[in-house]
Protein backbone atom coordinates (compact mmCIF):
# COMPACT_ATOMS: atom_id res chain seq x y z
CA UNK A 1 0.00 0.00 0.00
CA UNK A 2 2.81 2.37 0.92
CA UNK A 3 4.54 1.58 -2.36
CA UNK A 4 1.33 2.26 -4.16
CA UNK A 5 0.80 5.60 -2.48
CA UNK A 6 4.33 6.77 -3.00
CA UNK A 7 4.16 5.75 -6.65
CA UNK A 8 0.94 7.74 -6.99
CA UNK A 9 2.54 10.75 -5.33
CA UNK A 10 5.59 10.56 -7.57
CA UNK A 11 3.23 10.19 -10.51
CA UNK A 12 1.21 13.23 -9.52
CA UNK A 13 4.34 15.28 -9.25
CA UNK A 14 5.87 14.11 -12.53
CA UNK A 15 2.45 14.47 -14.12
CA UNK A 16 2.38 18.08 -12.98
CA UNK A 17 5.50 18.63 -15.07
CA UNK A 18 3.88 16.95 -18.06
CA UNK A 19 1.01 19.35 -17.50
CA UNK A 20 3.43 22.28 -17.63
CA UNK A 21 4.85 20.98 -20.89
CA UNK A 22 1.34 20.49 -22.22
CA UNK A 23 0.44 24.03 -21.20
CA UNK A 24 3.47 25.35 -23.03
CA UNK A 25 2.34 23.51 -26.15
CA UNK A 26 -1.26 24.67 -25.70
CA UNK A 27 -0.44 28.36 -25.49
CA UNK A 28 0.83 28.59 -29.05
CA UNK A 29 -1.84 26.17 -30.21
CA UNK A 30 -4.42 28.71 -29.06
CA UNK A 31 -3.07 31.55 -31.10
CA UNK A 32 -1.70 29.90 -34.23
CA UNK A 33 -2.79 26.24 -34.18
CA UNK A 34 0.90 25.40 -34.20
CA UNK A 35 3.13 24.00 -31.55
CA UNK A 36 6.83 23.99 -31.07
CA UNK A 37 8.39 20.63 -31.84
CA UNK A 38 11.63 21.96 -30.38
CA UNK A 39 9.93 22.67 -27.06
CA UNK A 40 12.04 20.00 -25.38
CA UNK A 41 15.20 21.75 -26.46
CA UNK A 42 14.00 24.95 -24.81
CA UNK A 43 13.51 23.01 -21.58
CA UNK A 44 16.97 21.53 -21.89
CA UNK A 45 18.65 24.78 -22.86
CA UNK A 46 17.13 26.67 -19.96
CA UNK A 47 18.34 24.10 -17.47
CA UNK A 48 21.82 23.91 -18.97
CA UNK A 49 22.13 27.69 -19.07
CA UNK A 50 21.14 27.87 -15.46
CA UNK A 51 23.81 25.34 -14.54
CA UNK A 52 26.31 27.37 -16.53
CA UNK A 53 25.34 30.68 -14.90
CA UNK A 54 25.45 29.06 -11.48
CA UNK A 55 28.90 27.66 -12.22
CA UNK A 56 30.04 31.23 -12.98
CA UNK A 57 29.22 32.10 -9.40
CA UNK A 58 25.82 33.70 -9.92
CA UNK A 59 23.19 33.52 -7.20
CA UNK A 60 20.82 30.67 -8.08
CA UNK A 61 17.73 32.84 -8.28
CA UNK A 62 19.47 35.28 -10.60
CA UNK A 63 20.80 32.42 -12.72
CA UNK A 64 17.28 31.07 -13.09
CA UNK A 65 15.85 34.45 -14.05
CA UNK A 66 18.64 35.10 -16.55
CA UNK A 67 18.24 31.76 -18.27
CA UNK A 68 14.48 32.25 -18.44
CA UNK A 69 15.10 35.61 -20.11
CA UNK A 70 17.29 33.98 -22.74
CA UNK A 71 14.61 31.36 -23.35
CA UNK A 72 11.98 34.07 -23.73
CA UNK A 73 14.17 35.64 -26.42
CA UNK A 74 14.27 32.25 -28.17
CA UNK A 75 10.48 32.28 -28.05
CA UNK A 76 10.46 35.53 -30.04
CA UNK A 77 12.99 34.12 -32.47
CA UNK A 78 10.97 30.94 -33.00
CA UNK A 79 7.81 32.85 -33.79
CA UNK A 80 9.52 35.36 -36.08
CA UNK A 81 11.84 33.06 -38.01
CA UNK A 82 10.41 29.56 -37.92
CA UNK A 83 6.64 29.76 -37.49
CA UNK A 84 5.60 32.99 -39.20
CA UNK A 85 7.33 32.34 -42.56
CA UNK A 86 6.18 28.73 -42.52
CA UNK A 87 2.55 29.72 -41.94
CA UNK A 88 2.74 31.96 -45.00
CA UNK A 89 3.76 29.08 -47.24
CA UNK A 90 0.40 27.40 -46.66
CA UNK A 91 2.09 24.07 -46.07
CA UNK A 92 1.09 22.43 -42.83
CA UNK A 93 4.35 20.54 -42.78
CA UNK A 94 6.45 23.71 -42.80
CA UNK A 95 6.30 24.73 -39.18
CA UNK A 96 6.57 21.19 -37.85
CA UNK A 97 9.84 20.80 -39.69
CA UNK A 98 11.17 24.28 -38.97
CA UNK A 99 10.45 24.26 -35.23
CA UNK A 100 11.88 20.78 -34.96
CA UNK A 101 14.92 22.01 -36.87
CA UNK A 102 15.46 24.86 -34.48
CA UNK A 103 15.19 22.43 -31.57
CA UNK A 104 17.91 20.31 -33.12
CA UNK A 105 20.10 23.36 -33.62
CA UNK A 106 19.69 24.26 -29.95
CA UNK A 107 20.54 20.71 -28.96
CA UNK A 108 23.67 20.77 -31.10
CA UNK A 109 24.70 24.19 -29.83
CA UNK A 110 24.21 23.07 -26.23
CA UNK A 111 26.40 20.04 -26.85
CA UNK A 112 29.09 22.28 -28.37
CA UNK A 113 28.95 24.89 -25.60
CA UNK A 114 28.42 22.75 -22.52
CA UNK A 115 29.57 19.32 -23.66
CA UNK A 116 27.32 16.35 -24.34
CA UNK A 117 27.73 14.80 -20.89
CA UNK A 118 25.06 15.08 -18.22
CA UNK A 119 25.80 17.80 -15.67
CA UNK A 120 24.62 18.01 -12.08
CA UNK A 121 21.77 20.43 -11.48
CA UNK A 122 21.99 22.58 -8.34
CA UNK A 123 19.29 22.39 -5.69
CA UNK A 124 17.33 25.59 -5.97
CA UNK A 125 14.87 25.47 -3.10
CA UNK A 126 15.09 22.11 -1.46
CA UNK A 127 17.52 19.26 -1.50
CA UNK A 128 16.38 15.95 -2.90
CA UNK A 129 16.73 14.71 0.71
CA UNK A 130 14.19 17.16 2.09
CA UNK A 131 10.78 15.73 2.80
CA UNK A 132 7.69 16.25 4.85
CA UNK A 133 5.58 13.52 6.34
CA UNK A 134 1.96 13.35 5.23
CA UNK A 135 -0.24 10.53 6.51
CA UNK A 136 2.90 8.71 7.47
CA UNK A 137 4.42 8.98 4.01
CA UNK A 138 7.68 10.65 3.20
CA UNK A 139 6.88 13.17 0.50
CA UNK A 140 9.73 14.87 -1.26
CA UNK A 141 9.53 18.62 -0.90
CA UNK A 142 10.80 19.02 -4.44
CA UNK A 143 7.85 17.04 -5.69
CA UNK A 144 5.49 19.22 -3.70
CA UNK A 145 7.03 22.40 -5.06
CA UNK A 146 6.74 21.14 -8.62
CA UNK A 147 3.13 20.18 -8.08
CA UNK A 148 2.30 23.44 -6.34
CA UNK A 149 3.93 25.52 -9.04
CA UNK A 150 2.19 23.66 -11.86
CA UNK A 151 -1.23 24.00 -10.29
CA UNK A 152 -0.51 27.66 -9.60
CA UNK A 153 0.42 28.28 -13.25
CA UNK A 154 -2.67 26.50 -14.53
CA UNK A 155 -4.89 28.59 -12.28
CA UNK A 156 -3.15 31.81 -13.31
CA UNK A 157 -3.43 30.96 -17.00
CA UNK A 158 -7.10 30.10 -16.74
CA UNK A 159 -7.77 33.29 -14.79
CA UNK A 160 -5.82 35.28 -17.37
CA UNK A 161 -7.80 33.79 -20.22
CA UNK A 162 -11.19 34.18 -18.63
CA UNK A 163 -10.93 37.38 -16.68
CA UNK A 164 -8.59 39.79 -18.43
CA UNK A 165 -9.04 41.78 -21.62
CA UNK A 166 -5.83 40.33 -23.00
CA UNK A 167 -7.04 36.87 -22.23
CA UNK A 168 -10.23 37.51 -24.14
CA UNK A 169 -8.16 38.89 -27.01
CA UNK A 170 -6.16 35.66 -27.03
CA UNK A 171 -9.36 33.67 -27.22
CA UNK A 172 -10.66 35.87 -29.99
CA UNK A 173 -7.45 35.44 -31.96
CA UNK A 174 -7.53 31.71 -31.45
CA UNK A 175 -11.06 31.67 -32.80
CA UNK A 176 -10.45 33.81 -35.88
CA UNK A 177 -7.22 35.79 -36.32
CA UNK A 178 -8.54 37.67 -39.36
CA UNK A 179 -11.58 38.89 -37.50
CA UNK A 180 -9.32 39.96 -34.65
CA UNK A 181 -7.14 41.91 -37.04
CA UNK A 182 -10.13 43.62 -38.60
CA UNK A 183 -11.33 44.63 -35.16
CA UNK A 184 -8.02 46.32 -34.46
CA UNK A 185 -6.54 43.77 -32.10
CA UNK A 186 -2.76 43.62 -31.95
CA UNK A 187 -2.83 40.11 -33.36
CA UNK A 188 0.90 39.92 -34.02
CA UNK A 189 1.76 41.04 -30.53
CA UNK A 190 -0.61 38.44 -29.10
CA UNK A 191 0.97 35.71 -31.21
CA UNK A 192 4.52 36.72 -30.28
CA UNK A 193 3.40 36.93 -26.67
CA UNK A 194 2.05 33.41 -26.81
CA UNK A 195 5.39 32.09 -28.05
CA UNK A 196 7.24 33.94 -25.30
CA UNK A 197 4.82 32.56 -22.72
CA UNK A 198 5.18 29.09 -24.19
CA UNK A 199 8.97 29.34 -24.07
CA UNK A 200 8.86 30.54 -20.48
CA UNK A 201 6.59 27.66 -19.49
CA UNK A 202 9.00 25.30 -21.23
CA UNK A 203 11.97 26.85 -19.48
CA UNK A 204 10.26 26.61 -16.10
CA UNK A 205 9.33 23.00 -16.76
CA UNK A 206 12.93 22.31 -17.72
CA UNK A 207 14.24 23.77 -14.49
CA UNK A 208 11.70 21.82 -12.42
CA UNK A 209 12.33 18.49 -14.11
CA UNK A 210 16.08 18.90 -13.82
CA UNK A 211 15.58 19.71 -10.18
CA UNK A 212 13.81 16.41 -9.63
CA UNK A 213 16.15 14.41 -11.80
CA UNK A 214 19.29 16.05 -10.49
CA UNK A 215 21.08 16.16 -13.85
CA UNK A 216 20.57 17.55 -17.32
CA UNK A 217 22.13 16.73 -20.69
CA UNK A 218 21.63 18.02 -24.25
CA UNK A 219 19.52 15.04 -25.32
CA UNK A 220 17.04 15.70 -22.52
CA UNK A 221 13.60 17.03 -23.32
CA UNK A 222 12.44 15.34 -26.50
CA UNK A 223 10.75 12.51 -24.64
CA UNK A 224 9.14 14.97 -22.27
CA UNK A 225 7.53 16.82 -25.15
CA UNK A 226 5.97 13.58 -26.26
CA UNK A 227 4.62 13.00 -22.74
CA UNK A 228 3.42 16.59 -22.60
CA UNK A 229 1.68 16.17 -25.92
CA UNK A 230 -0.01 12.97 -24.78
CA UNK A 231 -1.18 14.85 -21.69
CA UNK A 232 -2.53 17.66 -23.85
CA UNK A 233 -4.34 15.24 -26.14
CA UNK A 234 -5.81 13.24 -23.27
CA UNK A 235 -7.06 16.43 -21.67
CA UNK A 236 -8.23 17.89 -24.97
CA UNK A 237 -5.85 20.00 -27.02
CA UNK A 238 -5.97 23.61 -25.91
CA UNK A 239 -7.61 23.11 -22.52
CA UNK A 240 -5.58 24.21 -19.47
CA UNK A 241 -7.52 22.20 -16.95
CA UNK A 242 -7.44 19.29 -19.38
CA UNK A 243 -3.66 19.59 -19.56
CA UNK A 244 -3.40 19.37 -15.78
CA UNK A 245 -5.79 16.44 -15.47
CA UNK A 246 -4.26 14.68 -18.47
CA UNK A 247 -0.73 15.27 -17.25
CA UNK A 248 -1.40 13.96 -13.77
CA UNK A 249 -3.35 10.96 -15.06
CA UNK A 250 -0.52 10.12 -17.40
CA UNK A 251 2.10 10.65 -14.71
CA UNK A 252 0.34 8.40 -12.21
CA UNK A 253 -0.35 5.72 -14.77
CA UNK A 254 3.20 5.66 -16.08
CA UNK A 255 4.71 5.61 -12.58
CA UNK A 256 2.41 2.77 -11.53
CA UNK A 257 3.34 0.79 -14.61
CA UNK A 258 6.97 1.69 -14.11
CA UNK A 259 6.79 0.55 -10.50
CA UNK A 260 4.78 -2.63 -10.89
CA UNK A 261 5.71 -3.83 -14.38
CA UNK A 262 8.98 -2.42 -15.62
CA UNK A 263 10.38 1.06 -15.78
CA UNK A 264 11.15 0.55 -19.46
CA UNK A 265 7.42 0.12 -20.09
CA UNK A 266 6.63 3.75 -19.20
CA UNK A 267 7.22 5.16 -22.66
CA UNK A 268 5.58 2.41 -24.69
CA UNK A 269 2.52 2.78 -22.49
CA UNK A 270 2.40 6.53 -23.04
CA UNK A 271 2.67 5.89 -26.74
CA UNK A 272 -0.08 3.29 -26.64
CA UNK A 273 -2.28 5.81 -24.87
CA UNK A 274 -1.53 8.37 -27.57
CA UNK A 275 -2.43 5.87 -30.32
CA UNK A 276 -5.66 4.92 -28.60
CA UNK A 277 -6.61 8.50 -27.94
CA UNK A 278 -5.97 9.50 -31.53
CA UNK A 279 -7.86 6.52 -32.84
CA UNK A 280 -10.85 6.80 -30.52
CA UNK A 281 -11.16 10.26 -28.98
CA UNK A 282 -8.95 12.71 -30.87
CA UNK A 283 -10.63 15.64 -29.17
CA UNK A 284 -9.70 14.47 -25.71
CA UNK A 285 -11.54 12.77 -22.91
CA UNK A 286 -12.97 15.99 -21.56
CA UNK A 287 -13.73 17.94 -24.71
CA UNK A 288 -16.76 17.62 -26.93
CA UNK A 289 -16.43 16.82 -30.58
CA UNK A 290 -15.65 19.93 -32.55
CA UNK A 291 -17.59 20.58 -35.74
CA UNK A 292 -15.36 21.78 -38.53
CA UNK A 293 -16.54 23.34 -41.76
CA UNK A 294 -15.45 21.44 -44.82
Amino acid sequence: MTTFLSLVLAGVSVGAVYALVALGLNVTFWTTKTLNFGHGSLMMFCAMLMVYFASQGLVLALAAVLSLLVIAAFGIFIERFTVRPALKTNNSMGWVVSTLGFGIVLQGVAAKLFGSQAVAFPSILFDSEDFVTIFGLHVSLQYLVVLGLSVFLVVVLEAFLRLTRWGQAVRAVSHDPELGRVNGMPVNAIIVGSFVLSALLGGAAGLLVSQIGGTVDPAFGFNLVLFGFVAAVVGGMGSSVGALVGGIALGVLSKLIGGYVASAAEQPVAFAILMLMLALRPNGLLAQAEATKA
Partner: peptide
Protein backbone atom coordinates in the same frame (compact mmCIF):
# COMPACT_ATOMS: atom_id res chain seq x y z
CA UNK B 1 23.35 17.85 -36.53
CA UNK B 2 23.59 21.59 -36.18
CA UNK B 3 23.68 21.73 -39.98
CA UNK B 4 20.70 19.37 -40.22
CA UNK B 5 18.84 21.56 -37.76
CA UNK B 6 19.59 24.70 -39.73
CA UNK B 7 18.53 22.99 -42.96
CA UNK B 8 15.23 21.90 -41.43
CA UNK B 9 14.63 25.33 -39.94
CA UNK B 10 14.99 27.23 -43.17
CA UNK B 11 14.85 24.90 -46.18
CA UNK B 12 11.09 24.74 -46.66
CA UNK B 13 11.01 28.52 -46.59
CA UNK B 14 14.13 29.25 -48.64
CA UNK B 15 14.14 26.33 -51.05
CA UNK B 16 10.77 24.58 -50.88
Amino acid sequence: FIVYGIILTFSLIVLP
